[in-house]
Amino acid sequence: MPFWHALIAEWEKSWQLAGITPLPRITLTPADQKGTLTLNIFPLLKAFRGDAQKAAEAVLQPLTGIATAEVIKGFVNITFTPDFWRAFLSAVQSAPQAGYTHLSFGQGQRLMIEYPSPNTNKPLHLGHLRNLCIGESVSRLWERGGATVVRANLVNDRGIHISKSMLGWKKFFAPATPQTTGKKGDHFVGDCYVAFEKAYKAEVDALIAQGMPEEEALVKAPLFQEAQALLQAWEAGDPETLALWREMNGWVYEGFEATFQRLGVRFDRTYYESETYLLGKKIVEAGLAEGIFYREADGSVWADLTDEGLGKKILLRRDGTSVYITQDLGLPT
């Protein structure tokens, strides 16, 4: 039985006690209007001499849990307060015989739901929050349906963007830390990334002003060259570079965890792309040896997916460093 059928019975008693007749008719609010339920008060207008506002006030007076009420001619569109919904959901949970809580669509199934896939060069943004809400909601729905759900988070913790935030810290923030600045860790590292991008853009603009094509300026700007060198040092296992990478990622993870706890989100498995990219590189090397992939004159490695309508995809840069798709190849293994 829809929840509002039970409400109607309660409201009708309140209206009868208040002497309101005839009783308003109640329907779901049309999709193109704001509201949850709509009260049809047309039958009451004669008693209130055509004054829809006064009729609405009389109808709403004995009701509780109403957040908003909009009078549109002979109709009143209403929404409910958070307290109303909390009480309603609590009642649903404690009354399985009502038919709301008997779900078995996922019985015997085991599935993994992966979200929100953040990067460790900046704080979680609105898209991540959306994915967190959707991922957690879907996970809970499947669990409510009897399934075993494994919540997984794939963290993009390496790559050129991470090198940019590291270089941003070295150039513009060192030796400051989230602790010394009093700033949330992921926000602090995000500031480092933004500072890098701002200085990098200035270098690119200067090179373009000197007559260099934009595509060339983007890769020849000194800061980008330094970031690339830092990424190469990371992939080569340079101890100093790895130590800074671990420290800054640690700052970000502390910030992420604070957000996860605030949202009531948890994960059963956390995967790191720093652990999958080498597997991906091995797959690329094997595919290159078998002729599945090909190497360009500049040394970069590509997959030709033109026949599949996906064009050509780079798998390894000319300096041998990996890209997103390289890491993705390694994850399923």
Rank of each mutant, 00 (worst) to 15 (best):
F196H: 11
A195K: 02
K198F: 05
E257A: 15
Y272V: 06
Y272F: 14
T241Y: 03
Q228H: 00
F196N: 06
E254A: 15
E254S: 11
T270D: 01
W245V: 03
L263F: 12
L218R: 13
V219D: 05
W234F: 14
W245Q: 11
L223D: 04
V204L: 05
T259D: 15
V265H: 06
R269Q: 15
A221V: 00
M248V: 15
E215D: 13
T270F: 02
N249M: 03
A229I: 02
G264D: 04
W251G: 01
G211Q: 09
W251N: 07
G255I: 07
V252H: 05
N249I: 08
Y193W: 00
Q225C: 00
R246M: 03
L263R: 03
Q228M: 10
G190M: 10
L263A: 11
K201W: 02
A236F: 08
T270E: 12
A199E: 11
F267H: 08
P239Y: 09
G190Q: 08
V204E: 06
R266F: 03
Y193T: 04
K198W: 00
A217H: 11
M248T: 15
E247D: 09
A199I: 07
M212E: 12
D268F: 09
G250E: 03
D238W: 03
Q261K: 14
F188W: 00
E240P: 01
F196W: 08
E214S: 13
Q210G: 09
G250P: 05
Q232Y: 01
Q261R: 11
D238F: 04
L218N: 04
K198N: 12
L223G: 10
F196I: 09
W234H: 11
K198Y: 08
L218F: 04
T241A: 08
S274H: 02
A202M: 08
V194D: 11
M248Q: 15
V194M: 13
I208P: 09
Y253F: 14
A206L: 06
D186K: 08
A206I: 07
K198E: 15
F267T: 08
A209Q: 10
D205W: 01
L244H: 01
F256Q: 07
K198I: 11
Y253N: 12
E226P: 02
